[in-house]
């Protein structure tokens, strides 16, 4: 027990945090786009599952991991189109259509898995790529700069998403559509088109979240592989207050508490394992309680837009 807080331990916790945070980052940043435009997509987990399956299937049969990512993105896009058609064009209640999408993704992925693959198999997924120079920094180098490409991608996504949402006209349009669709419409912004775009972008990223699991982090597919991570990702969007950096903070907090609780179990800290597993969930709520999050949600969140209605 003497090495409980050694540098190696800390490194292990951080490495584990980065890996655990990766799918959350993709999915939650994607959901940030959808929600900023005013659409709550509760079907993230279903998109992740079907894409994780698709990516795994392609990787298993072709060995081409890039094609696998592309497949995942394409499946995400298709499911995003389905979600936006139902929620934007048909103006369905978003909570219900998202749950439908989740059930469909869960069922379809395990059905296809059973028919086309049959049993659990593993692949050689994305291998860690050590970034030259940075990766050689003693201590933090191997922790931060020795990961697979989809992991780096997740972290690059954060500043890009922030830049798009905060610094571009596209981002402005997405926000205005989520805040006041009627005003945006009167300014000549095509509300539906922006919402389609945002939901589909979110779904593509959810697809990549699934692929990052099945081709980079666990290198296999199984029934209900995500085990509800898509729902956590939705929660993290609220945690982050629709800001990519905040979302990243939430993903880090959740993941680091998770890797710390695993570490506590390994070194035999005397608390029941179930309580340890609860910690990330408890602390995420607690963190939000003390930071007093007064960010207003997009005013038109969860509201379909009908022209001339308001």
């Amino acid at each position: 027990m003497k090495d409980v807080i050694s540098l190696g331990v800390l490194g292990g916790i951080l490495t584990s945090m980065i890996r655990l945070a990766t799918p959350f980052l993709y999915a939650a940043i994607g959901e940030t786009f959808a929600q900023t435009s005013g659409v709550v997509n509760l079907g993230v987990d279903g998109i992740m599952l079907l894409s994780a399956y698709g990516a795994f299937y392609v990787a298993l049969n072709t060995g081409n991991l890039w094609l696998a990512l592309l497949t995942a993105a394409a499946i995400g896009l298709l499911m995003g189109l389905l979600m936006s058609f139902i929620s934007v064009t048909l103006k369905a209640e978003q909570g219900i259509s998202g749950i439908g999408l989740y059930m469909f993704g869960l069922g379809m992925s395990s059905l296809l898995f059973k028919i086309t693959i049959g049993t659990v198999k593993t692949i050689d997924g994305f291998q860690p790529v050590r970034i030259p120079l940075l990766g050689d920094i003693p201590g933090i180098g191997p922790i931060l700069f020795d990961h697979s490409l989809p992991v780096y991608g997740a972290f690059l996504l954060v500043p890009i998403a922030w830049w798009v949402l905060d610094k571009t006209t596209l981002g402005l349009k997405i926000k205005s559509v989520g805040q006041n669709p009627a005003a945006a419409d009167s300014l000549g912004i095509n509300v539906d088109r922006i919402r389609y775009f945002s939901v589909c972008l979110g779904a593509v990223l959810a697809g990549l979240a699934g692929a990052s699991l099945s081709t980079a982090l666990v290198d296999l597919f199984q029934d209900n592989l995500t085990a509800g991570q898509g729902f956590i990702a939705v929660a993290l969007v609220y945690f982050g207050g629709w800001n990519p950096w905040g979302v990243m903070g939430g993903a880090f907090l959740f993941s680091i508490v998770n890797s710390i609780q695993l570490w506590m179990q390994v070194i035999g800290v005397k608390i029941p394992s179930d309580v340890a597993v609860m910690l990330p969930y408890l602390l995420t709520i607690a963190a939000l309680m003390i930071t007093v999050n007064r960010v207003r949600q997009p005013a038109a969140l969860n509201k379909p837009f009908e022209r001339g209605e308001s």
């Binding site: 279903g46 389905l82 058609f85 139902i86 048909l90 103006k91 369905a92 209640e93 219900i96 259509s97 749950i99 439908g100 999408l101 989740y102 059930m103 469909f104 993704g105 869960l106 069922g107 379809m108 992925s109 395990s110 059905l111 059973k114 028919i115 029934d223």
Partner: peptide
């Protein structure tokens, strides 16, 4: 058939039913 087919079909039912609300509205 595998039970997962049922889940998939039920998911579609939920999706389409939620989509039908527009016209009834």
């Amino acid at each position: 058939v595998p039970s997962s087919l049922i889940d998939a079909i039920l998911g579609l039912v939920v999706l389409f039913v939620s989509g039908s609300a527009l016209w009834s509205r």
